[in-house]
Amino acid sequence: MLWRRITFLQLAFGALGLFGQNANSRWWAWPANPDPQAAERGKSVFTAHCAGCHGAKATGTAKGPNLIRSRIVRKDVDGSATAALVRTGVPGKGMPPVPLADPEMKELVAFLQWTLQKYDRVSFGVPAETYPLERLLTGNAEAGKAFFSGAGGCTSCHSVTGDLAGIGRKYAPVFLQSRFLMPRATKPKTVTVTLPSGEKVSGELRTINNYDIVMKDSAGQTRTFDAQTTKAEVQDPLAGHIALLPKYTDAQVHNMFAYLWSLQ
């Protein structure tokens, strides 16, 4: 999958450096994760009593402050300070008392803490599968079609009635947009190694770096070569897609997306 590509390159920019690699070893400032079911119920309490002023996601509106950044909420590990404030309100600042029963109050606090933690945990990440189609659908499908069969040169490998038939319904929209630019490889990379003797050996590439070349040869054997004394030529089935990236304008990306998404 796409994530597998993210090695050193993304470390340079932080994707796994901050998130994936260390996800298990990270602690957060709160002693326990709030119960997600209580948080879910608390969401309706929040929506009914608080969202009008504090916003649906508790990030504030002109009428009420951002609760994610609230000192009271952040420091309230057991929920008691929040509960006290909700019950008494803030006289003079427009916040009325909200007399919630204990179970509802607990759920409200769970929702606030869950929302807060979710906010803090967001890092450099990929968009969610649910990323809305309407945000992506800004291009012109006809122009995308023209690019597909013209400047893009896509028809030399692909056909919208063959391998790409129905491509628009195969993936979540936001993934479709990444995937047509850089698909998951369906075939492995291959490598041809030229030995010092001049002999050439070809196979499926397993590993290549400055020191080692590992391949599975045509007989199915795993073979290792010294990269310092041999010459390697790698054939990447995605080379065409990589070569195309610098040729796209943003408009062409969105046109192509509109076209491919239309292939339902």
Partner: peptide, 18 residues
């Protein structure tokens, strides 16, 4: 308005070298 402190997302495509 930003939905969180990140304010955006990034889908890596690849193509580079380290």
């Amino acid at each position: 308005e930003p939905e969180d402190h990140q304010g955006g997302r990034e889908a890596p495509l690849g193509g580079g070298e380290s």
